[in-house]
């Protein structure tokens, strides 16, 4: 019974959503709309659950003074402070929340993403090798695209942006389409397996 009920809910939900594409009228359409509203409510609760879980895990780490407890302290302090700042001072321009978001959170997050440039440079130097013809072609294409995408490329030769555009439009699109079609077929197959009840890994 513990397995049958979740399987039935999964089947009924999946089947109903698929049916609504073919029968958008009453009662299928109405039921689907209700389910879509439920989904959005559940999604919000999932966020709350995530925050509570984050709080619980880090509070435990902090209380037990486990290695790296100071990170937990910073996380919990920042979490509480942001909530209080937004709650009391509002989120308008010039508020504490706005200040923290613009001048603390945004630069920190952007910095983490910017580190990618350093790792890309280091990884390219160490691993991007013309070991054979295929790798050589990839390397040449990468160099042409990197130069063609920036204004410096146009300064070197006006042909570079055109070559870059051609690489992106034809060989890239062809490769991407193949990947997308393969992935889409995989998604369809997995979804059907879940709806029918063959794939049950989500039940643990």
């Amino acid at each position: 019974m513990k397995r049958m009920i979740p399987l039935f809910i999964t089947f009924a939900s999946g089947f109903l959503i698929i049916m609504s594409f073919f029968i958008p009228h009453y009662p299928v359409g109405e039921l689907t709309n209700i389910m879509k509203e439920w989904y959005m409510v559940v999604a919000v609760f999932a966020m709350i659950l995530g925050i509570l879980n984050l709080f619980k895990v880090n509070a435990h780490k902090l209380i037990k003074l486990k290695p790296g407890w100071w990170y937990a302290l910073i996380l919990i302090s920042a979490l509480i402070f942001m909530v209080i700042a937004g709650w009391i001072g509002g989120m308008e321009e010039g508020s504490w929340f706005d200040f923290l978001f613009k001048f603390v959170y945004t630069p920190l997050n952007a910095t983490m993403f910017s580190l990618l440039a350093f790792f890309v440079a280091s990884a390219s130097f160490r691993a991007f090798r013309a070991r054979n013809i295929d790798a050589g072609l990839l390397l040449i294409a990468a160099i042409l695209v990197m130069l063609g995408r920036v204004p410096l490329g146009n300064l070197i030769s006006s042909y570079l942006p055109l070559i870059q555009s051609w690489i992106m439009e034809f060989p890239n699109t062809a490769g991407q389409r193949a990947i997308m079609i393969g992935a889409a077929l995989g998604v369809i197959a997995t979804s059907l397996r879940i709806i029918i009840g063959i794939e049950r890994s989500y039940l643990n």
Partner: peptide, 9 residues
Amino acid sequence: AHLFIIIFI
């Protein structure tokens, strides 16, 4: 930055 990455490659 792109130029430097190309030089490193």
